[in-house]
Simulated scan of single mutants.
Amino acid sequence: MTRPIWIGATCALALAACNQERAADPVDRAQDAASAPVGQMSAATMGSNMVSAYVPNAAMGDMYEIQAADIALERTQNARVRELAQMIKTDHTAASEALQRQVPQAAPDVAIPSSLDQRRQGLIDNLRSASAADFDRVWIDQQIAAHNEALTLHRGFADQDSPLAEHARSVVPKIEAHLRQAEALKAAM
């Protein structure tokens, strides 16, 4: 007699979990959509004008990109997504290492963050929870938003009177290339 109750309870819990996952998907989409203008505004204002805002935003942007690329390399079945994810991981790892070498001399009072902020962590969490069928679309949409934000940040800071302005100028072409590929992938989907 207890066996049917246990099976019934297990099925009910599994069904509730499936329904909860579907209910969370619109929330994840809304969170991703809201992240884009918030990031753009931050990059265009303080990030583009102050070393103390540029460094953490550039560092967290690279951290996000590396983590998102790792997730894409694990989850995607699309060869073009995999190729872009590998390029993003390689280029943002190099940019992160360059920034970490330059900051101690150029801006010794500015700390480089070691973890993502809540907004970017939410994006990573949304990638991890995306269904297999939706993963590539979610990843591409996040990449387009993140690379637009990064372009705003680095282009804006490139004109500053700071030793880090050269770093900003040096990463722009690679970010532009990533963005072009992400937009082409989205158009092909």
Rank of each mutant, 00 (worst) to 15 (best):
Gly39Pro: 06
Met41Ala: 15
Met41Asn: 15
Ser42Ala: 13
Ser42Leu: 08
Ser42Val: 09
Ser42Met: 12
Ala43Met: 01
Ala43Cys: 03
Ala44Asp: 12
Thr45Arg: 05
Gly47Thr: 08
Gly47Glu: 08
Ser48Asn: 05
Asn49Trp: 09
Met50Thr: 10
Met50Pro: 10
Val51Trp: 01
Ser52Pro: 02
Ser52Met: 04
Ala53Ser: 12
Ala53Asn: 07
Ala53Ile: 07
Ala53Trp: 05
Tyr54His: 07
Tyr54Arg: 04
Val55Gly: 02
Val55Asn: 01
Val55Asp: 00
Pro56Ser: 12
Pro56Phe: 07
Pro56Ala: 13
Pro56Gly: 11
Asn57Glu: 14
Ala58Pro: 00
Ala59Phe: 00
Met60Gln: 06
Gly61Ser: 09
Gly61Trp: 04
Gly61Ala: 10
Asp62Glu: 11
Asp62Ala: 10
Asp62Lys: 02
Met63Lys: 02
Met63Asn: 01
Tyr64His: 09
Tyr64Thr: 07
Tyr64Ser: 06
Tyr64Cys: 03
Glu65Asn: 13
Glu65Val: 10
Gln67Glu: 07
Gln67Lys: 11
Asp70His: 07
Ile71Gly: 01
Ala72Arg: 10
Ala72Lys: 10
Ala72Tyr: 09
Leu73Ala: 12
Leu73Ile: 12
Arg75Cys: 10
Thr76Glu: 06
Thr76Gly: 08
Gln77Val: 05
Gln77Trp: 04
Gln77Glu: 08
Gln77Ala: 07
Asn78Asp: 08
Ala79Gln: 15
Arg80Trp: 03
Val81Leu: 04
Val81Ser: 04
Val81Ile: 07
Arg82Leu: 11
Arg82Asp: 12
Glu83Cys: 12
Ala85Trp: 00
Ala85Phe: 05
Gln86Ile: 07
Met87Val: 04
Ile88Glu: 00
Ile88His: 03
Lys89His: 13
Lys89Tyr: 09
Thr90Ala: 15
Thr90His: 14
Thr90Ile: 14
Thr90Gly: 13
Asp91Ala: 12
Asp91Lys: 06
His92Asn: 00
His92Cys: 01
His92Arg: 02
Thr93Val: 13
Ala94Ser: 06
Ala94Thr: 04
Ala94Pro: 04
Ala95Tyr: 05
Glu97Trp: 06
Ala98Ile: 03
Ala98Cys: 06
Ala98Tyr: 00
Leu99Glu: 05
Gln100Leu: 09
Gln100Ala: 12
Gln100Ile: 09
Arg101Cys: 07
Arg101Trp: 03
Gln102Tyr: 02
Pro104His: 07
Gln105Lys: 04
Ala106Ser: 11
Ala106Glu: 02
Ala107Val: 02
Ala107Arg: 03
Ala107His: 03
Ala107Thr: 00
Pro108Cys: 13
Asp109Ser: 15
Asp109Gln: 15
Asp109Val: 11
Asp109Gly: 15
Asp109Asn: 15
Asp109Met: 15
Ala111Tyr: 08
Ala111Ile: 09
Ile112Val: 11
Ile112Arg: 03
Pro113Val: 10
Pro113Ser: 14
Ser114Tyr: 05
Ser114Arg: 13
Ser115Lys: 14
Ser115Gln: 14
Leu116Pro: 04
Leu116Cys: 12
Gln118Lys: 14
Arg119Ile: 13
Arg120Asp: 05
Arg120Asn: 08
Gln121Gly: 11
Leu123Cys: 10
Asn126Val: 12
Asn126Arg: 15
Asn126Gly: 14
